[in-house]
Design a protein around this nucleic acid. Structure first.
Lengths: 251, 251
DNA sequence: CAGGTTTGTGAACGGTGTAAACCGTAAGCG
DNA sequence: CGCTTACGGTTTACACCGTTCACAAACCTG
């Protein structure tokens, strides 16, 4: 833990350029355009090769903006949760997942970039550390808060298959394991199950590989959640939660 | 219903060219290369513009080979089922889904093309009709065979939300509704639920958005299936089925 | 054989990512 | 303060990509 130096002028300048790259990129694909090195450069008033001082190649640009988009989207999911009182852990979790679905449908390109982007090598993101503010952290955090409140049954770590046991005790995928004892890591497994199901519906919906009428109504999304809530001890709470989710889908 | 003329020489020639386009394309991305109009043309010994006599644009080429890949992959899924006796409907269904997962992991590019390809407009595929041999038909067919044998409980059509009711009575997504009475369409909804969950695991695995150790072991895939089988009345049969699935994952 | 349709070519346009050589300027050091 | 260095940018160039158009050859048909 050395003393953290104040950033020199050059470093600040460089950081600002990174910010502009991300800003321009997001603006670009918010307009429905393709994310391209040249387009970004052009809009920044700079020649394409100049960007290679900041990213090693196109894929790294993609990873960079994907990370920032995830961060921004996560803020939206969190904001949706914050519409509810702080102690309504169940409601907050469902509000965030619902917001996730709505965001994905409204921003399919961004969704594809962040969640359907083949992850080849790790350590692709420079900027900031992976350990902050990803959507995975938000959801695991919310599930942890919920569990610490209602203590629904979770699988014992010793009951889990070996590979799963390793994965939940020493996660490489973003997850909020802080404040979760070694014996309580079964919750992470429950989270992974939930995330998998959520991902299935939303991805199918975003890609349009589902009946348009079902996408429009969101019934498969609701059905998926209803199928899952018992596993986090929310069976009794479901009617209230369903009403909330439906309201948000309509609004 | 006119008399079906025998194909003229030119038509046969044209059909052969289509076949070559598909063959070359599949060969191309089996080698890990990108699927590009120019690459296909080059390997066919033809100039790029020539391909425009066969496809209107790049996306149509993609759709064409995606359809053919789906067809070929479906044959694999069917072949896996055919390793089991004809009356083991449960086993056949699970063998096909397991083969689907294995195929997806082994051919991520092809998986992406067929199942993670944003579907913009319908009626994109010329060649053959959509109503034949897609993977959706295989799985719905297998589920129908299973249900007609064990008659597990299915939701009543009248209990389904309006949008779902419409979707299962008049499907636009490939599904085998032949031989399924109007009152039995609840089974299609069950199928959609299952497909959604299956898609979730497999897509996350293929894109690498899951802990590598869990992907390697296939435990999330197995867990997903285990979670689903009660809904198709296979609770008692599960131990046998799990062993079968695990054997296929290992082999 | 004549005429029209079908299939392919050649050249060209605008777009993409990326590599190499080059250069002014600002930062940092003696 | 002055020298040196390294950073941030340009220019040029290459190899791809999808797509269009005008044209020629090959083919089937009347």
């Amino acid at each position: 833990m050395g003393t953290l130096r104040q950033p020199t002028r050059r470093e600040r300048q460089r950081e600002a350029t990174y910010d502009e790259i991300v800003a321009v990129s997001r603006q670009l694909l918010a307009e429905g355009a393709e994310l391209s090195l040249r387009a970004v450069a052009g809009r920044m008033g700079v020649t394409p090769p100049a960007l290679y001082r900041y990213v090693a190649n196109y894929q790294e640009l993609v990873d960079l903006v994907a990370f920032e988009i995830d961060k921004a989207a996560t803020a939206r999911f969190a904001a949706a949760a914050d519409l509810l009182p702080e102690d309504d852990h169940a409601g907050r979790l469902l509000m965030s997942t619902t917001e996730f679905r709505q965001w994905a449908l409204a921003n399919p390109r961004e969704f594809g970039l962040v969640f359907a982007n083949p992850i080849a090598d790790a350590d692709c993101i420079r900027r900031e550390q992976l350990t902050l503010a990803t959507s995975g952290h938000l959801l695991t955090g919310q599930m942890r808060a919920l569990w610490q409140h209602n203590h629904h049954p979770i699988p014992a770590v010793t009951d889990l298959p070996a590979s799963v046991r390793e994965a939940v005790t020493d996660p490489v995928i973003p997850a909020e394991t802080e404040g979760l004892g070694p014996d309580e890591r079964g919750l992470i497994w429950v989270y992974m199950q939930g995330w998998t199901q959520l991902y299935g519906v939303v991805a199918l919906e975003v890609f349009g590989h589902m009946d348009p009428r079902i996408i429009e109504s969101g019934e498969m999304f609701i059905d998926t959640i209803r199928n899952f809530v018992p596993r986090i001890g929310l069976t009794e709470d479901w009617p209230r939660l369903e009403a909330m989710v439906r309201a948000r889908l309509a609004g």
